[in-house]
Simulated scan of single mutants.
Amino acid sequence: MFDVSHKPDSARAAVAQATLRVANPDTIRIIRGEAKSPKGNVIEAARVSGIIAAKRTSDILPYCHVIPIDFVRIDFSFPDKNDDLVLIDCEVKSVWKTGVEMEALTGATIAALTVYDMVKPADDSMQIGSIKLLHKRGGLSDAISQTSSSIGLHEKTSKKILEVAVLVMSDSRSEQEDRSGRVIVDKLQLSPWKNSLKIVYYKVIPDEKNLIELELRRLCDEKKVDLILTSGGTGIGPRDVTPEATMEVIDTEMKGISEALRAHGQRRTPASMLSRSVAGIRRETIIVNLPGSIRAASESLDVLFPTIFHAFDVLRGYGHRIAHEGGDNPHV
């Protein structure tokens, strides 16, 4: 069973379809409810069984996660040109860490089996045909698809790769001893969007407010990097001054990013409530404070990417259109 505990919740949806072929036209009439059924209302029984099956998928497929199902819909259609065909669609939605395609496939399959069971006393020549996933939305694969075609890589922009700087704040660690910054670098270089990123700078500096400010300004104004990820100095200790230094540098604060990082961390580590990390924009550079903890820094990247790519399209004047091709987002 895959470990999905590090993933953030996101809206997921999937639609699967099962086909049922019937040789006898009278059988179609029974399924439609136009003729008497041996066991009662076929469509309603199949609809209920399909919904139950989608909700109980993890009970019969051992490697499926137990997930909260927010919506299940079972639809039946009878193509006009094919009097011998019944199409059964199952749509499933959830806001969770993993997809719902198996739930949709299971719902469609069990609904088809229920139709067969309900009608077989009158016609046992029916055949359950293809069972396939029509489409799914949400999660990593959807994000990769959007990233490759748009986010941060808009065809009208000359900058095809985001340049990233990693800045670690620590009084006690050298670059040879640093681990949190290295985790950030390594994770980005191995990520699904590694071809859209380039690590152009990595440095460990002391927890000195003036020095942090100077380094951030230089990276923004001289090197003109796209994204600065800082690590460390975001707590409540006397030497934790990264948020103060960042606030002095940025022009616009992006509170949603820091709120999302804290919310994600809070569900995993109670001490996340002590984080004072901030995020913001200076000219065309986005700065994000990450925790100094190795685990917390790594988990923060799971929240930050790939959504951060879309911020650059908006920052560069391309608006929200690209990220909304699958539907309107009322929260942006």
Rank of each mutant, 00 (worst) to 15 (best):
G256N: 03
S258V: 02
R282N: 07
A279K: 01
D84L: 03
S58R: 07
K156D: 11
I286Q: 00
D70I: 04
C90V: 08
F305E: 02
V48C: 12
V66N: 09
R295D: 04
G107R: 06
A122Q: 09
L188I: 13
I144T: 03
D302P: 00
T234F: 01
K159D: 12
G33K: 05
Y202K: 15
N329Y: 14
G129K: 03
K97M: 07
R268T: 10
V4F: 09
V241Y: 01
S94E: 05
S170W: 02
I31E: 00
Y63I: 15
I281P: 00
K97L: 06
L20I: 15
T27K: 11
P68D: 10
L274G: 09
S145D: 14
G235V: 08
K39P: 01
R218L: 14
D26C: 13
P206A: 09
N210H: 15
A323N: 12
A46P: 01
Y116L: 07
R262M: 10
R276Y: 04
K7R: 10
D124T: 13
E284F: 09
D80Y: 11
K223Q: 12
R262W: 01
D59E: 14
E44A: 14
D171V: 11
G139V: 03
L290R: 00
G50V: 05
I294S: 04
S77L: 08
G181N: 00
P68M: 10
I184P: 02
K39G: 10
I308L: 11
S130L: 13
T230L: 06
I184H: 00
A14W: 00
G233K: 03
I88Q: 04
E248K: 15
N41T: 11
A46Q: 02
I151G: 15
